[in-house]
Amino acid sequence: MRGQIIDAIFARMQTDPDIFFLTADMGINLVEKFGETYPERYANVGIAEQNLIGISSGLANLGFRPFAYTISNFLIHRCFEQIRNDICMHNYPITLLGTSTGFDNAPLGPTHHIVDEWGALKSIPGIDIYCPSSVAYAASLLDKIEQAGRPAYVRIPKGGHTEPSSVEDMVKIAGENADMLLVSYGNPAQVCLEAQRRDPRLSVLIINRLHPLDDGSLIEALTPHRQILVVEDHFPLTGLYGSLCEFAARHPLNGRIKSAAPKNYAFDVGTTPEYFYKKFGIDVHSILKLAGN
């Protein structure tokens, strides 16, 4: 999905002189072409994330629409005040491109697990948060960001999933009955799709734009279901589970909302994301069990 997003930006730079691409020295064999082709609209600011955001803001002051790229945890956690003050307070059309989500960097340890970043970010007014679940949505993202014309964060999962093929912000794949709905995003969305393949009664709702959520679409998607299970690779309180609980307080639902998500940092080695999915109950087996199988 990272490739689709990068390719779309690179292609758009040819016709849009206001796009500026910045990296904090990340993206080997991926971002070099920006500097080679558009040296006047590319900067590698070094491993200096605060400066990455500040420089992006200054460029936005000049009318550029910067894309700032690095690993999600460094981009969001370290730069929270810069994002709040320098980007969002000024409503600058800066897009934060964060690579890696959840347990994508599984064996690298808890500093590299991205399990609490977008939830922190959604507390800041005025920023759109996306997490593409498929290459189709990833390829469509640039148009959506440009149309919104305001701060955006793209949480880019590792992987190149072809399903779902929809480019909608919310994609519902209806099951055979209206009892259980699985709600997910990013890589765990694939876990939910696999659970549905094994139990066709389950419905799945995949959300590609995590914040803000469209109330009308949510009412339509959630109302038919008696049980709603939010499956995510992010802490639930500030994650999608928290967002849906807040939504349910405003729009009472027929169903009860449950969570399958990590509840704390993990200090043990897991060589693949699936190790942590199992540990935190966001694997297919655990989901099917919660769904009554």
Binding site: G58, N61, L62
Partner: peptide
């Protein structure tokens, strides 16, 4: 006023972006 500041260590980084942007423009 070009930019709202208050937390220290912000304005200079934005200034760098402005300088880079003016060069690019």
């Amino acid at each position: 006023v070009e930019h709202s500041t208050g937390g220290l260590g912000h304005g200079i980084n934005v200034a760098v972006g402005c300088a880079l942007g003016l060069r690019s423009r």
